[in-house]
């Protein structure tokens, strides 16, 4: 099904611009009349993803597809990749450097939060090649 497609570039190593894509998606979804709770989930998951790309992967791209049923976000980077995805998904496990922690991030909650706030999530990663995270949030709860 064709829907609305949004594309963003997330610059690496630039915390000032992290959140621009999720902020912009939030605005767009509001204009489309998407329920507030759905927007909140999308915004949180996407911001965590953006922050991950800034911290770990020298930036990347985000593609958002909105259909009548759901919102799909594809976050793609060409960073170092994730060695052990299960471990990365564990709450509290973090490889973030200290300067990131002093900014209020790096607590090992990014990927777990992304999973928590989305209805479907897959992480594909290859060390030295990059990581693609695909997340889906249902607009209407599935029976």
């Amino acid at each position: 099904m064709s829907g609305i497609h949004l594309h963003y570039d997330v610059p690496g190593d630039d915390f000032t611009r992290a959140g621009e894509a999720s902020g912009s998606v939030k605005k767009a979804l509001r204009q489309l009349g998407i329920p507030a709770e759905v927007i909140r989930k999308v915004a949180i998951a996407m911001y965590e993803g953006e922050i991950n790309m800034v911290i770990h992967a020298y930036g990347g791209t985000v593609d958002v597809e909105v259909t009548g049923e759901d919102i799909t976000m594809v976050l793609k980077d060409t960073g170092p990749g994730i060695e052990d995805i299960d471990r990365a998904m564990t709450a509290g496990y973090s490889t973030a450097p200290d300067n990131v922690r002093s900014l209020g991030f790096g607590a090992g909650m990014g990927l777990p939060n992304m999973k928590k706030y989305t209805d479907e999530m897959t992480v594909e990663s290859e060390v030295g090649v990059g990581t693609t995270v695909t997340m889906k949030v249902y607009i209407t709860p599935k029976a």
Binding site: F15, A18, L103, F105, N113
Partner: peptide
Amino acid sequence: LSMVMGRAKADDIWLTVMGNMNSVA
């Protein structure tokens, strides 16, 4: 910040010691 994002409610006054652009986001 990851905790605040998930748990603060809309219209809350948010008390923190994080005074940077990420807290604004």
